[in-house]
Design a protein around this nucleic acid. Structure first.
Length: 294
DNA sequence: ATGTCTATTATTAATAGA
């Protein structure tokens, strides 16, 4: 079972490339971010003809998250319970769809689905823009709410195979930052508060890609030749619970997808999961090759 | 090199966001 996350930077611009990649790489489930469209604008036919179902959460031309899956998706959640909104306070007259616990309009940044035993989230963490920008406080509050809710999901079910996948807009380690326009400790994505916030997700969820792929970026800005100079950033992550992590058999970052005609500025991040290693299969009589610590 | 992409509004040029 191959599960992936990819910030596609407009699905309408990228549909051919994304579907080709899904089929070529034999991907079962893809979490997309920055689809930049509403569901009625999403190019569903190309995915369906390739054998994928879709769940789409898009409110306007900004943000937007979605799943493409070869398998049935259930328990679809648009946003998580404590997710804050952003913008002008809602007075009741605006054309907004949803209001956060802070009374501000919700953005399309989180979509949860269940596939088999797996609980999967496609997440587009707010960028932050600048340390003194209101979007920066929003970023930290959004992440804190996500961590709070994720901790609760796992408190209710410690064996839940949960993955929080997407564009986290944080480069946790110095080696994850190769873009000289970001100063470690003094810019967004690499500030102490953002890195502390990222660290605070552990051990609830941990990075299941880095153990297999210790180095490499997932994003290169379009500007200033960042890709040819390999001045990128590692900001896309698959963060998973212990039950999920125990079933991971491999991982990869598809750097090649930053090349060629009209690439996204992000590349896909992939994990391979062995469903036989998940908790529901422990009782299977033929599952005798499972690790003995189960 | 205020560097490049995207989408929208309004009309082939401007704006805004990342």
């Amino acid at each position: 079972m191959r599960i992936a996350t990819w910030n596609v930077n407009s699905i309408r611009t990228r549909v051919g490339r994304v579907v080709d990649w899904l089929v070529r790489e034999d991907i079962d489930v893809l979490a997309m971010q920055e689809i930049k469209c509403r569901p009625d604008q999403f190019p569903v036919e190309a995915f369906e003809q390739a054998g994928y179902r879709l769940e789409i959460h898009g409110l306007n031309q900004w943000n937007g998250v979605a799943f493409a899956s070869r398998h049935e998706m259930t328990d679809v959640a648009r946003g998580f319970a404590d997710m804050p909104g952003f913008g002008k306070p809602i007075t009741g007259q605006e054309d907004v769809q949803g209001e956060g616990p802070n009374g501000l309009p919700l953005e399309a940044r989180a979509l949860g689905v269940t596939v088999g035993d797996l609980r999967l989230w496609s997440l587009y963490v707010p960028n932050g823009r600048a340390l003194d920008d209101p979007h920066y406080a929003y970023k930290l509050a959004w992440l804190e709410a996500l961590r709070t809710d994720a901790e609760q999901w796992l408190a209710e079910n410690p064996e839940l195979p949960l993955a929080l996948m997407g564009d986290w807009n944080i480069a946790p380690l110095d080696g994850d930052m190769g873009d000289p326009s970001f100063a470690v400790g003094r810019s967004t994505h690499v500030s102490p508060d953002e890195r502390s916030m990222f660290e605070s997700f552990s051990p609830t969820v941990t990075d299941v890609v880095r153990p297999t792929v210790p180095e490499g970026y997932t994003f290169w800005d379009y500007k200033a030749g960042r890709f040819p100079k390999d001045e990128g950033m590692r900001i896309d992550f698959i963060m998973a619970s212990e039950a999920f992590a125990d079933a991971v058999t491999g991982a990869s970052i598809h750097r090649q997808e930053r090349t060629g005609d009209a690439p996204s500025d992000h590349v896909p991040v992939v994990v391979d999961v062995d469903p036989g290693r998940l908790g529901e299969s422990y009782e299977d009589e033929d599952d005798l090759d499972r690790p003995m610590w189960f």
